[in-house]
């Protein structure tokens, strides 16, 4: 594997996770529990899709086969997506969405913080830019974790269950393979074990404040690195890709 091939894969990982989480968040459009949250969730979706566009466009440049951001988003199948398993989890109820977003935003926050010093100029610039947006996403979701966790007995129970259910998808966020190994040597990628330490600090701080308990580490799902997914990604893609697949190259 060359450095370019590794970097191409790395960009797909970043771009795909943003794209899939952004698509999930956009499903809240007109379904938010209150108007302010409807606007907040879809604003976050917009940021994430913007981040995906930057990374997928860059992936296309690195690959050099003329593929565009749209080609990557609309013309790939499930087994060609490198998004985190956490990003594709269904929205569930508002508490489920809040916990998923919190876990993912904290991951992105600490990842982009260190990737801001990447030796790849585009990854560094993208990370500096995205970090500003993700800071708002993290703050927003963390406040809701506290509000729900330290809220009523029912809201506490519900989000504790969301945490317990989603925890087994968090191991996948920090797995690494040869791509990481090669790019860490080049100063482009970062060691996800370091990111995990910072991520855990944030998770613990917020859980404490929210009077929630951290789930025990047990079985962890794995898949992101090999483009292996849960049954939910296919359904998400079916909806997201329907129009460009049914009417190829449609313009509006």
């Amino acid at each position: 594997m060359t450095k370019e091939e590794a970097l191409f894969n790395y960009c797909l990982r970043l771009g795909d996770s943003s794209l899939i989480l952004g698509q999930r968040m956009s499903e809240w459009c007109s379904n938010g529990p209150i108007i302010e949250e409807d606007i907040a969730l879809t604003n976050i979706a917009l940021d994430l899709i913007g981040q995906a566009r930057t990374m997928l466009t860059y992936a296309g440049q690195l690959e050099g086969k003329g593929r565009t951001e749209d080609d990557f988003a609309y013309k790939r199948n499930e087994r060609e997506f490198y998004n985190t398993l956490l990003s594709e989890r269904p929205n569930g109820h508002f508490g489920d969405t809040t916990i998923r977003n919190f876990l993912h935003s904290a991951y992105y926050y600490h990842l982009f913080k260190v990737l801001s010093n990447s030796k790849d100029e585009m990854i560094a610039a993208h990370s500096v830019k995205s970090l500003k947006e993700v800071t708002y996403h993290l703050r927003h979701s963390a406040e809701w974790v506290v509000r729900l966790g330290d809220g009523t007995e029912e809201s506490h129970q519900k989000v504790q269950k969301s945490f317990n259910d989603l925890w087994e998808y968090t191991g996948d966020l920090f797995e690494m393979n040869k791509v990481d190994e090669l790019l860490i040597k080049e100063g482009i990628a970062v060691d996800l074990n370091d990111v995990k330490k910072e991520w855990l600090k944030t998770i613990n701080e917020v859980l404490d404040r929210a009077t929630l308990s951290k789930p025990e580490d047990a079985y962890m799902h794995s898949g992101r690195l090999n483009a292996i997914h849960s049954e939910y990604l296919g359904h998400l893609l079916a909806e997201m890709q329907f129009l460009p697949r049914a009417y190829p190259d449609a313009k509006w």
């Binding site: 302010e36 949250e37 606007i39 907040a40 604003n43 976050i44 917009l46 940021d47 708002y136 703050r139 927003h140």
Partner: peptide, 13 residues
């Protein structure tokens, strides 16, 4: 502050 997110990405409510 009512919401960190407003009518456009750049505004809070």
């Amino acid at each position: 502050l009512k919401s960190q997110f407003g009518s456009t990405a750049c505004k809070a409510l």
